[in-house]
């Protein structure tokens, strides 16, 4: 059954736990029309910049606009790809280096739609959703992250 008309809550406070990801995979075992899943996990990297190491990214967003963009991106993905379902979760607030901040999960009868849609969603989210990331260093100074 298509899930595209259900409103989806994308943002969650803090990191996305490995347990949440495992549970999400387990929840799809009853959907036996699915033949392929594709998962993207964005992880906070401990970049070293001018001798200082990033210890966390503190995420914020223009939430009202972000929710609209997520909706539009989801709808476009359902139009473009033959998907059974998709899930997107993104963190707000601090996420430490090594923790997961973005979880994109696409499912389809066949692998190509699942992998292509997953890649499409990640690129669209990075380009179009007003999310901002403050890279916090070990000495509590910070700089603002820019997607490249």
């Amino acid at each position: 059954m298509s899930e595209k008309k259900k409103p989806k809550k994308v943002f969650q406070q803090g990191p996305i736990s490995p347990e949440k990801i495992a549970t999400s995979i387990a929840n799809h075992q009853s959907k036996t029309n699915i033949g392929a899943h594709s998962i993207f996990l964005g992880q906070v990297r401990a970049d070293e910049i001018d001798g200082k190491t990033v210890q966390a990214i503190d995420y914020s967003a223009y939430e009202e606009m972000a929710e609209k963009e997520f909706y539009n991106i989801r709808e476009a993905a359902f139009e473009k790809f033959d998907l059974t379902c998709m899930h997107i979760y993104h963190s707000l607030g601090p996420v430490k280096a090594g923790e997961i901040c973005l979880f994109v999960f696409t499912s389809s009868a066949n692998r190509k739609a699942a992998t292509d849609a997953c890649s499409y969603l990640v690129e669209e989210i990075k380009a179009k959703v007003p999310i901002f990331g403050k890279e916090v260093f070990e000495d509590e100074t910070h700089q603002w992250k820019v997607n490249i």
Partner: peptide, 10 residues
């Protein structure tokens, strides 16, 4: 009206 710096999701 919202002033938005570069996006940094993901």
């Amino acid at each position: 009206v919202a002033f938005l710096p570069p996006f940094a999701g993901g």
